[in-house]
């Protein structure tokens, strides 16, 4: 059984068809890329999977659960972590708090525990902090624990965001243009990081990216989206040589 199965996904923004008959099967521990020109509907696909938008048609199944009609927090609690194109860390909260809050669906204590400071709250907060610190440790982020994210260098913010996305013990990790705004050196680090994350946390990674260097280097399989529909699918080599892809990226004139 595939981990994630997207079937005939279609979505309209008003009258505009932003995603058209999108199909995908992801199996466990895969690394799959989604590329396409600006405005092709890549982020919309992610948002549909996460439940931010409601698809007009089609079905999405994750680990045997139907995702259509669920709230985003329910969907991500099932084990889908994601990062954002423009980093969306909580800038008014410290790095450690960013990680702790992502534990929301995993805390066992009830509202009354948190109001009356019970032993269960203390135990649970300890557990949450422990887990968060362990995770930060793995990402070498411990020195930044008490910083506010907006004060951190861009590359570190990206790392914190990926780290935060792993808090909910995801089996699927969605990365939305993780290399955006990075220089070549940082991109090299990112490539290693993504590979390491995939092996270390046993996650399936589904990645949107414009940087061909990232996509071609790490993806086992690539889908190309243009005007909301898939125009090509295959291994990095197949995609590189596909005339349709070249046309979508560079326009008609190129021969």
């Amino acid at each position: 059984m595939p981990l994630l199965k997207v079937d005939k996904l279609t979505h309209y923004f008003g009258g505009l068809r932003s995603v058209d008959n999108f199909n995908l099967e992801l199996s466990e521990n895969e690394l799959v890329g989604l590329i396409g020109p600006n405005g092709a509907g890549k982020s919309t696909v992610f948002n549909l999977v996460c439940g931010l938008y409601r698809p007009t048609e089609g079905s999405i199944t994750f680990n045997g659960n139907n995702l259509i009609g669920r709230y985003p927090h329910q969907i991500t609690s099932l084990g889908i972590g994601r990062t954002f194109q423009n980093i969306r860390l909580w800038n008014e909260l410290s790095v450690i708090d960013n990680l702790r809050i992502a534990h929301f669906s995993q805390i066992d204590y009830k509202l009354l525990d948190s109001l009356f400071f019970t032993g269960r709250l203390v135990r649970d907060e300890q557990k949450v902090t422990q887990e968060a610190m362990d995770l930060l440790d793995k990402f070498n982020l411990v020195p930044y624990v008490k910083e506010l994210p907006r004060n951190l260098p861009y590359g570190i913010q990206r790392r914190v965001e990926i780290c935060r996305a792993l808090v909910m013990n995801p089996s699927l990790l969605l990365l939305d243009e993780p290399a955006a705004g990075m220089n070549q050196g940082e991109i090299g680090e990112l490539i290693n990081l993504v590979r390491w994350v995939k092996d270390e946390f046993k996650v399936t990674v589904w990645i949107i990216e414009h940087q061909m260097r990232v996509i071609m280097n790490i993806c086992e399989r690539i889908q190309v989206l243009d005007f909301g529909s898939i125009i090509a699918e295959g291994t990095p080599k197949e995609i590189r040589d596909n005339p349709l892809v070249i046309k979508a990226y560079l326009g008609e004139e190129v021969t």
């Binding site: 996460c50 991500t76 994601r82 909580w90 008014e92 809050i101 929301f104 805390i107 649970d124 996305a165």
Partner: peptide, 25 residues
């Protein structure tokens, strides 16, 4: 507490909170 502090996260970025499993509603 982690539960209560999530309301600050909601103020900061509600969509991110919802996607980071916070039951915002």
């Amino acid at each position: 507490s982690t539960m209560g502090k999530s309301i600050v996260a909601i103020r900061d970025d509600e969509i991110a909170s919802e996607l980071m499993t916070v039951n915002t509603r």
